[in-house]
Structures are given as C-alpha cells and as structure tokens.
Computed example of a mutant assay.
Amino acid sequence: MASIFTKIINREIPGHIVLEDEHFIAFLDISPLVMGHTLVVPKKEVDYIFDNDDVTLSKTMVFAKKVARAIDKSIPCKRVGVAVIGLEVPHTHVHLVPLNSMRDINFLEPKLHPTQEELAATAAKIKAAL
C-alpha cells in the first residue's frame, strides 16, 4: 500500500509543496513542531533511510540543503535542524526544523495545528526564498 507521502507525490492528497524535482519533493509537515517544519522525501518509496542506494542517500541531503537554505532565509530562526526518525511513516523522510532553541526539535513536545491558510502562507514564503 502506498505511503501517505507517495499519495502526496502522486497528488492523490494535497500537500503544501515547497520544492520538487524528478527524484525528490519537499512539503510542509501538517502537524509541525514549529512553523516552517518541512519534510524532504525521495519519490521512490523506501522505508528505512539506510536502505536507499548511496546516490539517493547523498542526493537527498543535497536537495535538503537547498530547502534548508530557503527556510533559513524565510522563517526567523537561528538555524535549521535536521532529524531522521522514520518511525511514523514507512517512507524515507528528512525533517527540516527551524530552530531557536533545542526544544524546537523535540518530537515529544505538542505539535502545532495550523490552518490550511497558515500552511499555504508559510509554503509561499519558503518558495519565494528558493
């Protein structure tokens, strides 16, 4: 069965996409730790990040770097944190989280529940910085 990320990639469900190419996609987390929390996902559905081939693994981080630079320019933060957990959705994904404190990347903290309009505005800011 296709992951929720594959459904976003295939446009079966909506996503607030900030960047996409032939092999990767980046979109906002709908339950972010902080506003601007973005997921970078290879389009090929592989569950565990280290099961990706070396080229995909390295290109995932290069793609994430482009997105992180745009987040850094568009969302007030000290830096952009990176996390790979991989337990919640069985599809490789890298979390990019705008950080002002260590608490901002604590996945045990309550998540935000932004409106679709807030997500769309945040996505537009990040896209404009690319």
Rank of each mutant, 00 (worst) to 15 (best):
V67N: 12
I105S: 12
A70N: 05
H91A: 10
V67P: 07
V84A: 15
M102Q: 10
L96E: 08
V94F: 08
K65I: 01
M61R: 02
H91T: 10
A70W: 01
L87P: 00
P76I: 08
G81E: 12
S101F: 04
P76N: 07
P114W: 15
L99Y: 07
P90H: 13
H93S: 09
E88N: 10
S101W: 03
V97I: 15
I75W: 03
L112D: 09
V94P: 00
D72V: 00
K78M: 06
K111A: 15
V97L: 08
H91F: 11
T92S: 10
G86P: 06
P110E: 14
A64G: 11
C77V: 02
E88F: 08
K73M: 07
T115P: 08
P114S: 14
V62I: 10
T60Q: 04
G81A: 12
T92R: 01
V94T: 06
K111L: 13
V62C: 02
E109I: 01
L112T: 04
V89H: 08
K78N: 11
I75L: 05
A70V: 02
I85N: 13
L112A: 06
H91Q: 11
L96W: 09
D104V: 03
V62E: 14
P90F: 14
I105R: 07
I85Y: 11
P110V: 14
